[in-house]
Amino acid sequence: MLSELDIKILNRVQSDFPVCSDPFSVLAIELDIDKALLIKRLSELQQDNTISRFGCVINHRKVGKSLLAALKVPHEKMEDTVTLVNAYLEVNHNYQREHAFNLWFVVTAATQCRLDKVLDELESKTGFPLLRLPMLKPHHINLAFDL
């Protein structure tokens, strides 16, 4: 269960994390709590996987190449296919969804050449045609959750 303090902390740390030598002091002052307590609580929330990652979110239109891919996977082949797809470090989100195209994932690479190579390999190794959906235009991105 999250406390009111946890919610206050989590609503703050999802974006605009301070880029300076002592970021937790800046946050502690802003949130009006003790810095050591803030770090302790954030470590705990990371350990119990409430926070899945602390880092930067990269704009893939400016850095590297990325696209959304989908496969139609027969039910009995799902587990094997997921293992195969997840083995690629270039695959960073992978969800089973309710649709004929039932496996959806994002593939990211430093170059278009490497991206194409990974996609071709995935297609040949899984044996299923791969839907390739690069982004043409973002209309909105807001991944912060208001708790």
């Binding site: 740390v13 409430t50 602390f54 930067c56 979110v57 400016k62």
Partner: peptide, 12 residues
């Protein structure tokens, strides 16, 4: 320059 869209913690 927009290479980083967001700095912070990603929630599960």
């Amino acid at each position: 320059d927009g290479k980083i869209k967001r700095m912070g913690m990603v929630l599960n």
